[in-house]
Each structure stands twice: as structure tokens, then as C-alpha cells.
Amino acid sequence: MLTVWYNTRCPVCDAGIARQKRRLIEAVKSGWIEFRDINLEPVALAGYGASLEDIRRRLHATDAGGRLLVGADVAIAVWKATPGEGWLAALFGNPVLLPLTRFVYDRFADLLYAWNRRKGRW
């Protein structure tokens, strides 16, 4: 089971997750993957030390083993599960590119977070 926590108030995040939900409909129906709005459960990941603002800034997920995934690692886990997108996980999650993937994801997430705050999407 993979539970992905995201910010539905961010139009970019919401659209991206909506796209993944459509691609993963069978996995969602079977309960293998779940997408949850952090705004409805703001302290859901407090036990992991993740605040509401942390989750609004970057995707967070918990896997079947209870391990916390953050940022690009969540995207890679979702790509692995998405039909036709495993190649993205293999490419961007390989040991050589993973540090760059994380860096680029984090910079994009920072920009998106700042844009959402300026627009008052909290």
C-alpha cells in the first residue's frame, strides 16, 4: 500500500494527482494506492515529523512498510506503479540521476510553493 499525501489547494498538484488517479484507477480501486488531501488531515504525518507546510511544499507518502517518502521519491514510487511510466522511474530514479532528480524536484517544488502562497492558496 502506498498512501500519497498532497495539497489539493495547489492547482498544479491537484491536476497532477488527478491525472495519476485516472492512470492508476485499478490500483486505487484495489486499495494498493491511495491519494489523500493533507488539508483534510493536517496532522496525519506529524508522527514522522512532517508538518502541514512540509506536505504543502513537497509530496509525501508512506509505503507498505510504514516508511516515509518525500518529494522526488514519491514521484518515482508513483511512476513505478503507473502503467507505461515505469521507464520514468527507472530513468530518474537510477543511482546516477537520482541526486539531480531530487535537486530539480525540490527547486520546482520551492517555486510552486512560493507561487501558491502568493496566490493565497492556504
Rank of each mutant, 00 (worst) to 15 (best):
I38V: 14
E53Y: 04
G71W: 06
D73Q: 00
R9N: 11
D54V: 14
L24H: 05
S51W: 12
R102W: 11
R58I: 00
N116A: 02
E41K: 02
E26T: 14
L97T: 04
E26N: 15
K119H: 08
N116W: 00
G120F: 01
F103H: 14
G93N: 05
V28C: 12
P42A: 09
W122R: 06
V12M: 13
L112G: 01
R36G: 09
I17M: 13
R22G: 10
G120Q: 03
A27Y: 01
L24A: 02
I76K: 01
A61M: 07
L52I: 15
N116R: 04
A109L: 01
T3Y: 08
V104K: 15
E85T: 07
L100S: 00
D54Y: 10
N94R: 09
E41S: 08
L59G: 08
F108V: 15
L88I: 01
R19S: 13
L111C: 11
I38A: 12
A72V: 02
N94H: 05
Y6G: 03
L111Q: 02
I33N: 07
G93H: 10
A44R: 08
W5K: 11
R58V: 01
S30N: 13
S30T: 14
V4P: 09
R36E: 13
R102H: 06
L100C: 02
T82V: 05
F92K: 04
D106L: 03
A50W: 02
P95D: 04
